[in-house]
Nucleic acid binder design. Sequence first.
RNA 1: GCCGCUGUUGCGGAAUUGGCAGACGCAGCAGACUCAAAAUCUGCAGGGUUCACGCUCGUGCCGGUUCGAGUCCGGCCAGCGGCACCA
Length: 804
Amino acid sequence: MSKPYEPKDIEKKWQETWEKEGAFCVGTDRSKPKYYVLLEFPYPSGQGLHVGHPRPYTAMDIIARKRRMQGYNVLFPMGWDAFGLPTENYAIQNKIHPKIVTENNVKHFKEQLKALGYSFDWDREINTTDPAYYKWTQWIFLKLFEKGLAYKSEMPINWCTSCKVGLANEEVVNGVCERCGGEVVRRVKSQWMLKITEYAEKLIEGLDDVDYVEKVKVSQKNWIGRSVGAEVDFVISGKEDKLRIFTTRPDTLFGATYMVISPEHPLIDKYRSDLKNWDEIVAYREMAARKSDFERTELVKEKTGVVLEGLTAVNPVNGKEIPIWISDYVLMSYGTGAIMAVPAHDERDWDFAKKFHLPIIEVVAGGDVEQAAFTDVASGKLVNSGFLDGLEVAEAKKKITEWLAEQGIGKQKVNYKLRDWVFSRQRYWGEPIPLVQCEKCGFVPIPESELPLMLPEVESYMPTDNGESPLAAMTDWVNTTCPCCGGPAKRETDTMPQWAGSSWYFLRYTDPNNKEAFASKEALDYWMPVDWYNGGMEHTTLHLLYSRFWHKFLYDLGLVSTPEPYQKRTSHGMIMGENNEKMSKSRGNVVNPDDIVNEFGADSLRTYEMFIGAFELSAAWSNEGVRGCRRFLERVWKLRDMLTEEEGYSAALETKVHQVIKKVSLDFEGLKFNTAIAAMMGLVNEFYRVGSVARGEFRTLLLLLNPVAPHITEELWELAGYEGRAYMQEWPVYEEAKTIEEETEIAVQLNGKVRATIKVGIKEEQDSVREKVMELEAVKKAAEGKNIVKEIYVKGRIYNIVVK
RNA sequence: GCCGCUGUUGCGGAAUUGGCAGACGCAGCAGACUCAAAAUCUGCAGGGUUCACGCUCGUGCCGGUUCGAGUCCGGCCAGCGGCACCA
């Protein structure tokens, strides 16, 4: 009898062996095809890993290990996205420098990851808080600044009252702070912004050339929110200025019965002296300004507004004079901050018109505009619209847009919902923005030779209520000289957001120690793009979009060789607690992987995480489920007692083995690990049923299972006396012809209901199958006294007889 | 309100994309081994009905297409996630 399976000993032994042998360091042989497997590097939090982390990690480890066995030169790196608020908060509470906190957390994470046996190339480990790394984050920022894509702007931002920090639009969820759930209010602050909007079109177009799961593409497109319409200038009666609006429905121009501008629209102040109800207007503006984002979304529906008495506009198509209103349902930050209102064909305008008794004119027939706005653009023809009458909506759009252009009062225009990226954080633990402000020269980049601009050592990292970064209190550091004129200057004291470091980290992995560049051209040319990137859906409109933006920018500068950073993007589902609720400390349902490794072993944990269910869907944790996977590995372990000398496959199981190789090979590629493992379990069950395993069969099983459970398979490989190491072997191949059974069981149906099963040859023709079918008692009985109307034979599946 | 996903057994989940629903695993039941238990091995196992061969119902609900529907079409219901006055 063989010795018992002791994962603790085995796993430690092989982890040490792999490290000693440099098993997973990237090879230098560049004649091999490359494969770059990437997963989202973690934020090293104080809590350490939870069982959610290993799911995507194990999946990608399987892909990386399989690719190596398939002969690829594989890059499968790991690092730390370590700047961020939780570390800073922990540092404040415990009076430990965030650098030390980060070091400790990284150490803990790394131990945990190593205990799971991942095949990362640890020689390429990176850390976004390392000055040698953030030097290049700052460098890229300076390039953005140089090209005019980074600018400082006085603007209302989302201010988290609890974190005391400005947030990007993407970080505000349901009107509250994504991280802490604190209230978010509008606050006008001077902020660094990145012009991601300049890349809106490219970010959409680029999606056509990459292999992302469809829902990621859809989310990004929706977030960018492209819409095609027209800009139209309306004359303001008796004034020089025109009121420019954006609309996606220029075809309804004849139905515009009033206009609405945003409360913040500059025209209001400009024509203050013309406005007879100024007090009322001011009161409304103040009310609108006081609302936080939360309140604005909270209050929805009921429309409010004030008419501007003393100013009117002229509808350019019919010369009619129409009133101008202000209302907070028109946003200054989208389009031109002004709209033409067509209540008959827009729900919001309809609500507003009903409330304030404004005229509703139908211009597209097909609905009842007294009852509701008619917004269907697919049906309906234009009416009450002069030269547009009788046209379909699409035709009318085209014709009116041409007409507007001829008249010089409008043109086609594309707008995006995407806003520029608020890039300043009033915090300590982030990359310093490498600029100084000089009274004479304005903002001046610090010279490249002075990069990295190091974070200074400070006494207190406490955020302040006045909205200044803790760095602002460091006068020694803040006061400096202008690199341009040598005069006195102040350093920028805001730092970069957490998303900065992760916007280009995949480039650094290709050449992590380069001191001359963020990565050499040669390394980038060889490794990029990332062949397969897996990550969470929650990053779709944040990290994933940001990093595509940075990469496209670098591409336009000729600094990277591919227009898109990631060729393929997949997503994993969350691991839920045993009660099927999200795992969290407060719910008390968090499972620590260390405990699972101790009780069952890393291989059991890895196998279970892959067996738990469809990879892209969420799944509830079950300790009993882990036990089942452990049981499976035990059964594999004991197969060694059943080995025969046969180096090939036994006649009895040859077909089965080929089928399983095929199934596992294909399922791994489709991230269908659960069914791949089920197939291997089935094969093991077959071995037990037969009572023996040929050495060749065992060999194949170990190789198929190796990416999932690398330790036990490596140990068994050695114990069974096969040559070399399992992880170095070639991936098993199958012969298509040998996956097909000679004989198979098919169902015999009568009117679609199964009445019997018979064995037939796989290639057997209908005539010969028919003979067997007609002899069946069930068929004879059913056919008696009835007509056979039709017979359908699907090879290897069914034989269906239709009787009447 | 809009977009996306999901609904199959006591539970987690399969089903070659229109061809024997419930693979594989968990929990359960029975047997073997054991003084006994655990572990392990071998079986059984959707519901109803029948001593049984069977028959019949069954993939959230209603309807349709088809020789045949978990899968396709139309109309609902429920749950999860995202967006939310974007003109």
